[in-house]
Amino acid sequence: MAATPAPAATEPDVLIQMSGVNKWYGEFHVLRDINLAVERGEKVVICGPSGSGKSTLIRCLNRLEEHQKGSIIVDKIELTNDVKNIDAIRREVGMVFQQFNLFPHLTVLENLTLAPIWVRKIPKKEAEETAMYFLGRVKIPEQAGKYPGQLSGGQQQRVAIARSLCMKPKILLFDEPTSALDPEMIKEVLDVMIELAREGITMICVTHEMGFARTVANRVIFMDRGQIVEQNEPEEFFKNPKSDRTKLFLSQILAH
């Protein structure tokens, strides 16, 4: 359990620190020497071709995947096999999945209140009030009594975002949140994410939506074959990509 001393006022408030992180799936080297720091309030977008390890990277941050080498420190707690550390980190890190992963046998309201009741031990009434508040923030408060199967894809993903928000996390991770949506529903989800970003939450987002990156991101990271190839501010990144691999990737996705 590493506890670094509180940073001085002039030092950046680093929420996530990944140093020399390597991960293997069996013999396959999927993350290669990742060095990454994210400050509080930063919005980071990670892009790259499929198989580059970007999903694996953020899944390592809440221990859905284990890294074999290097260190990950989240909110001043080191991520090891220590179950207490993992629990503490998962309370502060929320995740929104590509496939939504809502619990189909529970209503929308129950989906949102389950974790606050069982993990943060919040009384039911208070949890429901919080849930209704966040449902309002994602603009679908009237769906509280419905089951996920009765909602459209865009609505389900917004419920998933609200579910993570109900835990009041410090960091939100997004794993390709709009890739499974029909085109007309992508905008409603992106709008919610932009509003969240503007309020100051720390975000790491794996996505192909470059418009979102331009609007909201402080930093864009390009990954290829397990390594961070390039990282820059959005304007610079899109206008002057420095590496050849970045240029190739951008030409492919920005073609249309």
């Binding site: 859905l64 890190v93 992963n101 809502l102 389950l114 993570s164 835990m167």
Partner: peptide, 22 residues
């Protein structure tokens, strides 16, 4: 689906609660 377990773990739910409720 495995995604259910992942979502539960990402929310911080313990395995007992995950098993019983999800």
């Amino acid at each position: 689906s495995h995604g259910q377990t992942e979502a539960a773990r990402a929310l911080g739910l313990h395995s007992g609660v995950t098993l019983r409720r999800i």
